[in-house]
């Protein structure tokens, strides 16, 4: 279990989900003649003018608004993603300048499949917890892609979540402890010059997602001397709708505990953003004194578990920026042809 020598917490948070959706049934219409089930009802689709950088900017602005912290006082802007618009050129500097930070910051991009944003969060805890920084912004954002017809195409979606880390006394939720558990597990990967990732099928699921999430979560619970029922809410990484519900049940968490943060059924898997966005959606409805457990997961593989406690400050800050519900409410469905055009799946001669 890792704890900072100076207690830390979240001062603000912000989310972003694009306006557009494609229904799972619409994707199935193209590839399976509509036969069989779909892993999520719908997934978010980024508009033509959106990418990891633009979504990070909006989520980051909301996090700053909620915290009431001027951008000029940030010391850190870190963006975790598997879909940075550039292979070489940081997203972090563009996001930082759009937010209006000073140039005297650390800005970097993280990469760890769906856990890239939570890597940034843990590092931000270290920066603030050690006293090296007063305010650190950790962002998870993705415009994930699946090969046309692949199972991933039903779920790989777009969104962002930004968490502003600061000292616990000023936090809307304190981060009490974290655990990180990783191993070289080839369940899912994408080579540097390839457009779509592939599954290492034998390793998908049980030895990857389930093993790592359970290892990190049970270790955190046992070291804190708590059980699943001690938490008001829980969020687990959401590669589809089923996995988070299954892993929650296996570890003794109820449907009611995971419901506020379960977003994948309606927006798909926003990769680096999904668990963090689930945490934000949970903070949207949480009350002071509530306890929240979040366990992220990234292929390749690893899981980070965090224990948080909501403070009184949440209530006055919550409405300073749009809630997740505002983004979920503005859904505009597109068909597969529009989706294919927007996502660069058409070969233009």
């Amino acid at each position: 279990m890792m704890q900072t020598s100076r207690p830390v917490g979240l001062l603000g948070y912000g989310v972003y989900v694009p306006r557009y959706r494609i229904a799972g049934k619409e994707i199935a219409r193209i590839w399976t003649d509509g036969q069989g089930g779909v892993p999520v009802e719908a997934k978010s689709v980024p508009g033509l003018d959106e990418d990891t950088i633009t979504m990070s900017i909006e989520a980051g602005r909301s996090a700053l608004l909620r915290a009431g912290v001027p951008a000029q006082e940030l010391s850190v802007v870190w963006v975790g993603s598997e879909s940075h618009p550039y292979s070489v050129k940081p997203s972090g500097t563009i996001v930082a300048e759009a937010l209006g930070t000073s140039p005297w910051i650390s800005a970097a991009d993280y990469q760890f499949a769906c856990k890239a944003g939570s890597e940034a969060l843990t590092a931000a805890m270290g920066m603030v917890g050690s006293g090296m920084a007063q305010y650190a912004l950790a962002i998870g954002a993705d415009t994930a892609q699946g090969r046309p017809g692949d199972a991933l195409e039903y779920t790989a979606s777009a969104g962002a979540a930004a968490l502003l880390v600061g000292v616990a006394e000023a936090a809307l939720a304190t981060i009490d402890a974290t655990v990180s558990y990783v191993s070289d597990t080839p369940d899912f990967f994408r080579r540097a010059d390839r457009p779509y990732p592939v599954h290492g099928h034998r390793f998908t699921g049980e030895p990857a997602y389930f093993h790592h999430i359970k290892a990190a979560t049970t270790r955190l619970l046992s070291e804190l001397g708590r059980t699943a029922t001690d938490f008001t809410y829980a969020i687990f990484h959401q590669p589809n709708a089923k996995f988070p519900q299954t892993v929650a049940k296996q570890m003794g968490f109820s449907e009611a505990q995971i419901k506020p943060g379960l977003l994948s059924p309606v927006i798909g898997n926003t990769y680096s953003a999904i668990a963090l966005a689930g945490l934000c959606a949970t903070l949207d409805i949480a009350r002071p004194g509530d306890t929240i457990l979040m366990t992220t997961y990234g292929s390749g593989s690893g899981a980070d578990a965090y224990a948080l406690t909501v403070t009184d400050a949440l209530l006055e800050r919550r409405e300073r920026a749009p809630l997740m519900a505002a983004y979920l409410a503005r859904q505009e469905f597109v068909d597969y042809a529009v989706y294919a055009k927007w996502r660069g799946k058409l070969v233009l001669g």
């Binding site: 033509l48 003018d49 950088i53 633009t54 900017i57 759009a98």
Partner: peptide, 17 residues
């Protein structure tokens, strides 16, 4: 106001926000 990708100046060019 939102900050968005304004244009893409090609595979060897910059993205304009």
């Amino acid at each position: 106001m939102v900050t968005r990708r304004m244009s893409d100046t090609g595979p060897d060019g910059l993205l304009v926000y």
